[in-house]
């Protein structure tokens, strides 16, 4: 059965919704976790969950966290796209929770891209 009770879920959401509901405020960045079939099969839910927990623990409220579908690079999943204010979007691939935390610390918080996990920089175009 679920590891989280509904009550815990409610509490978690109460604290996390701060980060969701500041959309009109001063977001300095956006994190998109790719949650197509390929992403989910490769572990995207754990990546999303890692971001949710870390945002919650560190009280990060100025980064929007969202999901999108497959970006056409299924073999590179799980993938995230990080878009920081005034910078081109950066795609990271083959993630796990440890790599995700490193990207959070170094790219999102300190502003330095994690070169070793980068798939590409710039906007995607559906082909």
């Amino acid at each position: 059965m679920p590891k989280l009770t509904i009550e815990e879920l409610r509490k978690k959401r109460e604290s996390t919704k701060k980060s969701i509901y500041l959309r009109e405020g001063n977001f300095k960045g956006k994190v998109t976790v790719h949650m197509g079939t390929c992403g989910i099969a490769a572990g995207a839910r754990e990546i999303m969950s890692t971001f949710l927990d870390e945002f919650d623990d560190r009280e990060i409220t100025d980064i929007m966290l969202t999901s999108s579908g497959c970006a056409g690079l299924c073999s590179e999943e799980p993938m995230v796209t990080i878009e920081m204010e005034d910078h081109a979007p950066v795609k990271y691939g083959k993630l796990n929770p440890e790599k995700t935390k490193k990207i959070l610390n170094e790219h999102i918080i300190e502003g330095n891209m994690v070169e070793e996990y980068i798939l590409g920089i710039g906007s995607e175009r559906a082909g």
Binding site: K3, L4, R13, T16, R45, M48, L52, L65, S67
Partner: peptide
Amino acid sequence: DLAKTLEVLTIT
């Protein structure tokens, strides 16, 4: 983990 699926869906 059904709770995790619900958590991710509702929050995002």
